[in-house]
């Protein structure tokens, strides 16, 4: 595999080895502080009671799910424009994490919705947008899985990711529009600017912890993907021993 002959991924792997322990430690610390604060320091909501603590998972997951898509869109630009060999590894590694984050967001949203709205699912504009994002993550993962050649799959997925990035604001806008049309009753804004500092601090700490967690998982997944591609390249080389990879050329006149 040509691009893996370059030193770049090797250097990347070495860098990951150095960064990862620190990142894991920081992530664990942030979660320790964040979880402690959100469970023991943050006050109960006068209306929602303890249920409000779900928000400390739900909101960061939603934020991170959107950040994850932005990272994938930037990586896709990297694949198509700069042709960086690690860009499509990054995009591919981010998709399952994004799917997991949207899934977390949907599940916690449903669990919060049952006591609050009396139902697990409401076709609220935000929940619907997250659901669409979830489907798009799964579709991208399916595209990656169905295509045999990782380079080709990377390019195809990059195009789709960018089209999706163009389309997501339109989807968000149209879902909002659709939502106001069908149910004018507004949903309580929890992450608005009116939030009390006692709640805001744990929320921000948790957001930091989730961000760190995302990068830990993303780097690990990227490392796995690099190694997986090396295994693939080795297997292909092993298969083509009879007909090795390079051709030699000789040209002479035929007379």
């Amino acid at each position: 595999m040509a691009i893996w002959d370059y030193a770049n991924p090797t250097r990347f792997l070495r860098l990951v080895e150095i960064i990862l322990p620190w990142l894991i430690a920081a992530c664990a610390a942030a979660f320790a502080v964040g979880l402690y604060k959100s469970f023991f320091m943050a006050p109960e909501d006068y209306q929602q009671g303890d249920t409000v603590r779900i928000m400390f998972i739900h909101v960061p997951a939603a934020w991170l799910a959107m950040m994850c898509y932005s990272i994938m869109a930037i990586s896709s630009l990297g694949t198509l424009v700069w042709k960086h060999p690690l860009a499509d590894v990054s995009a591919k590694a981010a998709a399952p994490i994004g799917a997991a984050l949207t899934f977390t967001c949907l599940v916690t949203g449903a669990l919060w919705g049952k006591p609050m709205w009396g139902t697990y699912w409401v076709w609220d504009a935000r929940l619907t947008s997250v659901l669409v994002l979830f489907i798009m993550y799964l579709g991208l993962m399916a595209l990656w899985r169905t295509m045999e050649d990782p380079i080709k799959a990377g390019k195809a997925a990059a195009i789709l990711t960018l089209v999706g990035a163009l389309n997501l604001p339109i989807i968000k806008f149209s879902v909002d529009w659709w939502n106001t049309l069908h149910q004018p009753a507004s949903v309580i804004r929890l992450d608005g600017p009116t939030i009390h500092p006692d709640m805001l601090v744990p929320l921000l700490v948790m957001a930091l912890a989730f961000t760190l967690l995302f990068f830990v998982l993303h780097l690990m997944a990227m490392r796995n993907e690099v190694l997986r591609r090396r295994v693939r390249a080795m297997r292909m080389r092993a298969a083509s021993v009879a007909a090795p990879a390079t051709a030699r050329a000789t040209a002479q006149p035929a007379e």
Binding site: V132, G139, G164, N167, S174, V175, W177, L181
Partner: peptide, 20 residues
């Protein structure tokens, strides 16, 4: 089938405004 899965989320706005 994969094509339909990839395309349907992108067509949501058209469906929404068409029906609306």
């Amino acid at each position: 089938l994969l094509m339909a899965v990839l395309v349907i989320p992108l067509t949501i706005p058209i469906l929404i405004f068409g029906v609306s």
